[in-house]
Design a protein around this nucleic acid. Structure first.
Lengths: 284, 284
DNA sequence: CCGATTTTGTGCACACGTTCACAAGCGTTA
DNA sequence: TAACGCTTGTGAACGTGTGCACAAAATCGG
């Protein structure tokens, strides 16, 4: 959702739609603000889901916030707050029922209905994505592949024939594709994006290093290898510098501590892990 | 998962919040640290760098914060604040010199010295990564590949022979690998991670859907396809629900606006775009 | 040399997200 | 049944990041 620059909060309607829960605790400080799960929390919910699924597979029936938190790499307070966005599904003094949590999170994340996916750009990465059939466990079936290369058109990749990108609007509309994944060279990305939007795609996962322009009703998320590496590079540099100039203020006793730290979760600005797929093969 | 004796809780070292413990609330961070660039800003700097490089290639000499901001998909105030972390390299009434900004950002991100990269797990994704020779433009040369599969060992991928993961510590130490990329199945990830750490790798980019345990001096970033998709799924669900229950508060005047929205940048928790590589081919 | 114009740099206020700490609720045991 | 221990749910403090608005440079025109 586009966070509008001029401070106009989009009309987040009150319809909360918890199945059994009646009135939510409307703590609105502004008007009509029922409950909106923070973006950061959504990302973590996905991680919890993966961990919970694994636990369920091992026969666990209940978990405490403490257990789940440490397995997910966050602190328990944050976890409880995140779960509280779903409603009150825990039992004080006991913990959470794994089954219940799983289905609540799935419902909240909209995983109860399949979201069909299209991959555009069948290069190295696109190929990998297309072959990752069924995608994360289940729930995200890849139903269309596109590219410009004439040599690729018609060739089946991962069981699906590649189609031409000019057909994107038609095919996407017809197959009701919900999510488009862009894995094209940067130059082609915006054009592809426009076609996806024309085809009624609601969300885009963009691997191309470009800032896409989209209508406000389309959600875009970006994954950018180069940026990830550069951020890491920054940290390397910062540490090196710290080590050099290091004396005075920096006695960093813990610097070389080999304990399994992982405090504050994996550094990733708000992302996290996956889900289910307890035993499958290669990642992507 | 009963709590009982199952003290899976690893030796949570000093650092911070252990549950129910009076811990030293040392604000060590504050000491002497005049400037610490916020993580979020670092991610954006990488985007600015890419945009600036493109501009430089087109012969631009100066940019205003307004121009650069809109090209990068952020607002100009934020951009100026971000740049101010580097120091004062702008000229009031004029703007910024492209060359200067580029080199300042490169310096800050530690791109002045090459960071060598190793890729572990030569499956679909790993293959794609390995072939993406030279990586983002330049600056991140891939210098080692690893896998467990005996059939792969010795096979050259993207010009480099694949080595066995047991050799990770030795090879990484020898080649002074700075960044390790994990593209293995989830089950293998932690083991690989440990080996990378043993090899002296300082940063890890993790594509496996697992929460890695690492010593506190190692930086980890995670890229998780499943989570990305689930976040998008959440938004689809939220919109659908909004549309159904939609009336009352929701008059969404702008809902279908086709304007090049994209304000506040691409939703991605703090990530962004890439850099240079003005004319190359397939992404990854 | 002065004023008009442009654009940076930043103080400030606000919103968001994280962490703390504790009352409320549940199960168990005496 | 009452008291106790455990764990959730959340109000409130805190910290960080974002956006606004304006004073401070710098250039240009007269």
């Amino acid at each position: 959702m586009a966070r509008s620059g001029n401070g106009v909060e989009p009309p987040q309607p009150p319809g909360d739609g918890a199945p059994t829960a009646e009135l939510p605790k409307v703590t609105d400080r502004a008007v009509g603000r029922a409950r909106a799960i923070p973006e950061a929390a959504v990302a973590r919910l996905a991680v919890y889901l993966r961990v919970l699924s694994a636990m369920a597979d091992q026969g666990a029936v209940t978990v405490s916030s403490e257990e789940l938190a440490s397995a997910a790499g966050v602190n328990s307070a944050k976890l409880r707050k995140d779960l509280s966005y779903l409603g009150s599904y825990g039992t004080r003094g006991v913990g959470y029922e794994v089954e219940v949590l799983v289905s609540e999170i799935e419902r909240t994340l909209g995983l109860t209905r399949k979201q069909t996916v299209a991959v555009v750009g069948i290069g190295n990465l696109g190929h990998a994505l297309a072959n990752y059939a069924g995608f994360p466990g289940r729930g995200f079936p890849v139903e269309a592949l596109f590219d410009v290369d004439p040599d690729l058109i018609g060739v089946p990749v991962g069981g699906l024939p590649v189609q031409h990108i000019d057909d994107i609007p038609k095919v996407c509309a017809q197959k009701r594709i919900a999510i488009g994944i862009i894995a094209t060279p940067p130059a082609a990305a915006q054009g592809v994006c426009d076609r996806l939007v024309a085809g009624g795609v609601q969300c885009i996962l963009n691997f191309a290093p470009v800032v896409l322009q989209v209508p406000s009703h389309v959600e875009v998320r970006k994954v950018d290898l180069a940026v990830e590496l550069q951020i890491l590079s920054f940290h390397v540099a910062r540490k090196a510098e710290q080590r050099h100039a290091g004396r005075s203020a920096a006695k960093r006793a813990e610097r070389n501590g080999r304990a399994p730290a992982n405090r504050a979760g994996q550094r990733n600005g708000g992302r996290a892990t996956a889900r289910r797929t307890p035993s499958n093969g290669e990642v992507v």
